[in-house]
Computed example of a mutant assay.
Amino acid sequence: MKLLLVKLSSLGDVVHTFPALTDARTMIPDLDVDWAVEEAFAPVAALHPAVRRTISVPMRRLRKRPLAAWRSGEAGAVRAALVQEKYDIIIDAQGLLKSAFVARLARGARHGFDKASAREGLASHFYQGRHHVPEVEHMATRIRKLFALALGYSIENLPEDSGLRVPAPEAGAPPYLVYLHGTTWPTKTWNLEGWQALARLAQAAGWQVKMFAHGAAEEARARKVAESCTAVQLLPPQSLETIAPVLGAAAGVVSVDTGLGHLAAAYGVPTLGLYGPTDPRLTGMFGPHVRELAAARNCAPCEKTSCRIMPGFQEGPPCMADHDARMVWATLQSLRAGPA
């Protein structure tokens, strides 16, 4: 069976689709999956063993500069890749007008969330198969149910499995932790003092800590953490292809709400998420060894990129600054130790 999956973005949303692909491959062993995904996340989509081919969609350029995209041939190349063969089924697992439009370009019976379940209800008008999966569970579970309804099987006895396997560690490499501090929303950031204190706790316990940084703000924060603690190794900017194995081989991860944290959780790495303005119950990290520290304030989760309590904050709004480094460290150690 040939399946086209449409799930364009974001990194966390891409990762949340993995368990559904594992289910489908288990129930339909001859399943071949092509995945239409935004070009930045194609390397991550390709990590799942059920994926035969990724179709990179430069959605941002297509939306911002459509004429230039057509003239350059990019739009035509995407359409040619989508119509290259006829699919037995097409599943739009995103439920947006943009993803429904991409699915509409391909050849095959289109399935997706119904009007009441899709993030943009109008998207459902593009599907022949519309499935009711209410937004009352984690997104990864909802996508698993969407696949099961579209492909005709039950997930009742299927384990939650991302399908990713931890890469083999380098011979002789010491174990390490990863601290993921970078995120797109300023309200999701934890403050510098928190990261510095957490790094010192790791050093006192004999751990090495690795940190990534992309962009000036992240680089400045990571540099200050590294300057405060010799255990911290600041890694240079790199691609998702090289970041993924570093995450997969980590002994533990502490992360704000960011896509790389979702990827670490999918690998099965003990992953602790720090949450403030966002709600981990519906879109939190999904994996076998995940724990999340949610904000304790009444105003959270607000789902806002600005803070009404402290409008002028630079980083670490009050709901995130409340996370105490000692509590974070103790929770990480408990998570790594496993069930009591």
Rank of each mutant, 00 (worst) to 15 (best):
G95K: 02
G95T: 12
L97W: 05
L97E: 07
K98S: 08
K98E: 09
S99H: 09
S99F: 12
A100G: 05
A100P: 00
F101R: 03
F101G: 13
V102Y: 01
V102F: 01
V102L: 07
V102R: 02
A103E: 08
A103S: 04
A103W: 02
R104H: 15
A106K: 00
R107Q: 08
G108I: 12
A109R: 11
A109Q: 07
A109P: 08
H111A: 05
H111E: 03
G112N: 15
F113D: 09
D114E: 14
K115M: 06
A116C: 10
A116G: 15
S117T: 01
S117M: 00
A118M: 09
R119K: 07
R119D: 15
E120K: 14
G121C: 08
L122E: 04
A123T: 13
S124K: 05
S124E: 09
Q128M: 14
R130N: 11
H131Q: 10
H131N: 14
H132N: 04
H132A: 03
P134N: 01
E135N: 14
E135P: 07
E137Y: 07
H138C: 11
M139Y: 04
A140G: 15
A140T: 15
T141Q: 13
R142E: 13
R142V: 02
R142P: 09
I143L: 05
I143P: 10
R144Y: 13
R144I: 00
L146R: 09
F147D: 15
F147R: 02
F147I: 02
F147K: 02
F147Q: 14
F147C: 09
F147Y: 09
A148Y: 08
A148N: 09
L149H: 11
L149Q: 03
L149R: 11
L149E: 04
A150M: 04
L151T: 09
L151M: 10
G152R: 02
G152K: 11
G152Q: 06
Y153C: 03
S154E: 03
I155W: 01
I155F: 00
I155K: 07
N157E: 12
N157P: 13
N157V: 14
L158Y: 02
L158I: 04
L158K: 01
P159G: 03
E160D: 15
D161F: 11
G163C: 08
L164G: 06
L164S: 01
L164V: 14
R165H: 10
V166S: 06
P167C: 03
P167Q: 15
P169R: 01
E170I: 10
E170V: 01
E170L: 05
A171H: 09
G172F: 00
G172T: 11
G172C: 02
P174E: 03
P175K: 10
P175G: 11
Y176V: 06
Y179N: 01
Y179P: 02
L180I: 15
L180S: 00
L180W: 02
L180K: 07
H181F: 05
G182N: 15
G182P: 10
G182S: 12
G182Y: 00
G182W: 08
G182A: 14
T183H: 00
T184H: 15
T184D: 09
P186C: 08
P186F: 11
T187M: 13
K188A: 03
K188V: 07
T189N: 15
W190C: 10
W190L: 02
W190Q: 06
N191D: 05
N191Y: 05
E193I: 09
E193F: 06
G194L: 01
G194W: 04
G194N: 13
